[in-house]
């Protein structure tokens, strides 16, 4: 599993479609918001948590189809499926690599972007905490969508339609946790963490079933 994670990270750096693409998209989406809503600092501060979370979610979505599709196209997935590593282990490794490529850089980049959106000082800690514990859920749910659509040519749109509704609980709780005035950020953070843990524990098995069905 370690070699699979390392290989995916190497591929992401080598092909330029991993870190750079996700981060650039996140930066652009968030930076567009002040142009769209105007230079009203109060309004920007109020919408900053939602904007940052939606930006993170969309950036994550952008690279989901790469999780299994490239391995499917060049025969690597078939070879991996017949290797000693179970398919659930392969799905865990690939979703983890996806989180390192997207979730982690997004969490770090959210700090300067929060400043750009006039985010309240007290909210930064909750922003970093909620993105840190929430983005793994985005990667694992996304991996499930990617596993279902792996055999479909140009399945990106279908993948988005499948995955976006499943992101709603994480988005709601994550963004609410960052919002100042929220009385129970720690409880909301615990709920986001619970969603992530639930996804990490169960989704690899669902991915394995989906991949097995597509490989038949």
């Amino acid at each position: 599993m370690k070699s699979l994670i390392l290989r995916d990270l190497r591929l992401a750096v080598r092909s330029g479609g991993g870190f750079a693409l996700t981060l650039s998209f996140f930066l652009i989406v968030v930076m567009m918001v002040p142009f769209g809503v105007g230079a009203n600092l109060d309004l920007l501060a109020r919408i900053a948590p939602g904007v940052l979370w939606i930006g993170a979610l969309l950036s994550c979505l952008l690279s989901l189809d790469r999780i299994f599709q490239l391995d499917w196209e060049d025969g690597t997935l078939e070879a991996l499926a017949t290797s000693p590593i179970p398919l659930s282990g392969i799905a865990t490794a690939k979703a983890t690599a996806h989180w390192i490529i997207t979730g982690l850089p997004i969490t770090i980049a959210a700090i300067p972007l929060g400043y750009l959106l006039n985010l309240e000082t007290e909210a930064y800690i909750w922003l970093v905490a909620s993105l840190s514990v929430g983005t793994p859920a985005l990667s694992f749910i996304g991996a499930f969508g990617a596993a279902i659509t792996v055999g479909i040519k140009r399945g990106g749109l279908l993948l988005s339609l499948l995955v976006l509704p499943l992101y709603i609980p994480t988005l709601m709780l994550g963004a609410q946790c960052v919002t100042i005035g929220s009385e129970t950020p720690i409880k909301l953070l615990a709920l986001v963490a619970a969603i992530s843990l639930f996804c990490i524990a169960l989704i690899p098995f669902a991915c394995a079933i989906a991949l097995r069905a597509n490989l038949k």
Binding site: R7, L11, R14, S15, D74, G75, T76, E78, A79, L80
Partner: peptide
């Protein structure tokens, strides 16, 4: 039919 190798590695 496919070799399962990555062209960028």
């Amino acid at each position: 039919h496919l070799d399962g190798v990555k062209s960028t590695l």
